[in-house]
Design a protein around this nucleic acid. Structure first.
Lengths: 142, 142
DNA sequence: TCTTAATTGAGATTTATTCTCAATTCCCCT
DNA sequence: AGGGGAATTGAGAATAAATCTCAATTAAGA
């Protein structure tokens, strides 16, 4: 939602890594932030071309990787060799319907707490996690 | 552990799908079952060649997919575009050390129960799930 | 403004995975 | 047990996502 915060966060990140703030990078970030929920890199390349801001494929790949390193997006899942990313608005996990392919987002504090305590018991310091539950969604389960 | 059960299960699966039981398929399954924890498809191709049972790359790819469909192995994670699989001895989740790359397996009943109840509340019927916690393991956290 | 290091674009390259199709093998029916 | 037809295999070609190359361009900051 608060995309200004994302943009300044990204600029901070670039500065901290001695990377330049280029129009290509900011344009790609802007396009990424326009995406609703999940997107593919190829979507971004297409949309940039449609708009008046064509950017080379290599640059989009490089920049998506940089945005991911900055923690602003994350890689979710791969379907048919197409990698899906999503903007890290807030943390959540996914249920994925094996019939219609829909992604259902959810968040559960109890689950998060339990994960933290399991890690502690193993002497493991968690930084992030992903959890995906595959199955059949309400609509597809007639 | 009980590899006989895996083999007969695989043969059952093949029959149910009207697929042939070929020596190539059974040899590949046998090699897969020899792997300790995680393995890559390329490992299998290499090991089959070392042994006296060379099988073509295409057949190994095709068969790994079939074994996965039979539910005997599962795809775990991709590191540097190398896909890792593991034998489905019993269900567990993973912690993955971002420093040394080690996979730590764990299982927690409370976590499983919680997942089930979250799904129920969304009207989602789960069939399987994966959960990966990334972070730093005990050894790497000096 | 000027110098230097970083970045970009376009196309070549890499590499995992899939495809093609003729030759071979498995399965099943009689 | 043997034959016919469908399924499978192998070898290499094909595909496609992602990365690399390097000359030309651009950002940063003194």
């Amino acid at each position: 939602m608060d995309h200004k915060k994302f943009k300044s966060h990204f600029q901070e990140f670039l500065r901290s890594k001695r990377k330049n703030i280029t129009p290509e990078r900011m344009d790609i970030l802007a396009e990424v932030l326009k995406q609703e929920s999940h997107f593919k890199i190829d979507d971004i390349i297409g949309k940039m071309a449609e708009a008046k801001k064509p950017v080379s494929r290599a640059t989009v790949y490089r920049t998506i990787k940089t945005i991911e390193e900055a923690g602003l997006i994350k890689y979710i899942h791969s379907i048919n060799d197409e990698k899906f990313y999503e903007v890290e608005e807030d943390h959540h996990d996914h249920m994925i319907c094996e019939i219609c392919g829909k992604f259902i987002e959810f968040h559960n504090d109890e689950l998060e707490a339990l994960q933290t305590s399991i890690c502690k018991s193993k002497g493991f310091k968690p930084s992030r996690h992903t959890m995906k539950i595959f199955g059949v969604c309400k609509n597809c389960d007639q």
